[in-house]
């Protein structure tokens, strides 16, 4: 019985939140890794792209809510998501036309594009705050739980409850669907293969008749889609606040680098590695240990390795360890 309780507590406090957070990071890291692979630079504006895409979704959600349209028991935001994605696609394509393309034509070095993306970060950040403000925004509606802790306790008779939030369920299901679609696209379609070819060898792709501008356009469209989905899922699960998206940049970069920059499989793996390290190292294990240890050995403290404020430190230390042992990341990235 104690063992079961410990397992349920582990699932409830570590596993389920870890999987949900990992999915969000993975989706974010996929966007970063695609830009790195195709456009050759690390996009500092990715966090703010997530924020803008999510913001558009939030606004459309509010509009739908005011019209009384809902998707009960699912959150209305899912209905608004396509509009958010469309907005983000237009935004990124517009940004590319107005800003990035100039440097691509000039064959500017990737570092210059990184600096350009710093400028874009400022602008996106400003626009988001200008339109929706800097505060927390709630846009979640629908049923809160798939399994609530109370029902779970009643049904199983255990002391520990397992709660599974709707947002966590949606996050995980959406992430799986998106990842399957993305890999199908990259490996099976002509456009996807041309993207991989371009990422592998730009000159040869050109000689093969692949149109670089088209590849870049498709890439931005996919990146916009991934970023918006990641942003909305994170916003539903936690809350929508422009600044938190900017802060997500570090764990997202860490995920992409741990997995191997430019490698989509790596981005997903990296997302989960970072998420689980963050959750396990900052979780207070007392609750679980109490069930597993005899009373005399019960821990007196919280058994929390590091306070939650150090979660960035965790991403970073994991990153450092991976880089020291495997400089190209867990999966062979392009950084050779």
């Amino acid at each position: 019985m104690d063992l079961l309780n410990a397992i349920v507590a582990f699932l409830n406090y570590v596993f389920v939140p870890g999987v949900a957070y990992g999915s969000q990071l993975a989706l974010g890291a996929l966007g970063v890794t695609l830009v790195y692979g195709i456009l050759r630079f690390s996009n500092f504006a990715h966090g703010d792209t997530m924020a803008l895409g999510a913001m558009a979704t939030v606004l459309v959600t509010w509009l739908f809510q005011s019209w009384g349209i809902s998707l009960r028991p699912l959150p209305t935001a899912l209905l608004a998501l396509p509009f958010g994605i469309a907005f983000a696609i237009l935004l990124l394509l517009g940004t590319d036309r107005a800003v990035y393309k100039f440097y691509r034509v000039k064959k500017a070095k990737p570092v210059i594009l990184v600096i350009v993306s710093l400028g874009i970060t400022f602008i996106y950040n400003g626009v988001t705050r200008f339109i929706i403000g800097a505060d927390d925004q709630n846009f979640f509606d629908g049923q809160r739980f798939i399994i609530s802790a109370r029902e779970f306790k009643r049904a199983t008779g255990l002391d520990e409850g397992l709660s599974f939030k709707t947002t966590q369920g949606i996050t995980i299901v959406t992430a799986i669907i998106v990842v399957i679609l993305l890999f199908w696209f990259l490996n099976k379609t002509r456009a996807g293969k041309s993207m991989r070819a371009y990422s592998d060898n730009e000159d040869l792709a050109l000689l093969s008749g692949i149109n670089p501008e088209r590849v870049v356009m498709i890439t931005w469209m996919i990146v916009a889609t991934l970023a918006t989905i990641a942003g909305v899922l994170y916003g539903l699960d936690k809350s929508f606040k422009p600044f938190t998206y900017f802060q997500l940049l570090l764990p997202i970069f860490a995920s992409a680098i741990v997995g191997g920059l430019g490698n989509p499989v790596g981005a997903i793996a990296g997302g989960f590695v970072i998420a689980f390290s963050e959750v396990t190292i900052t979780y207070a294990w007392k609750k679980i240990l109490v069930y597993l240890m005899p009373e005399s050995l019960e821990p007196s403290g919280l058994v929390q390795l590091l306070s939650t404020d150090y979660k960035f430190a965790v991403s970073f230390v994991i990153l450092l360890i991976v880089l020291l042992f495997k400089p190209t990341g867990l999966f062979k990235g392009q950084a050779v």
Partner: peptide
């Protein structure tokens, strides 16, 4: 103005660079 000042930072810049300049 569009050079990288010898930067070799792979965490921000893909070492594959930007392809050859074609007239």
């Amino acid at each position: 103005p569009y050079g990288d000042r010898g930067n070799k930072d792979v965490s921000i810049a893909n070492p594959k660079g930007m392809g050859s300049e074609i007239p």
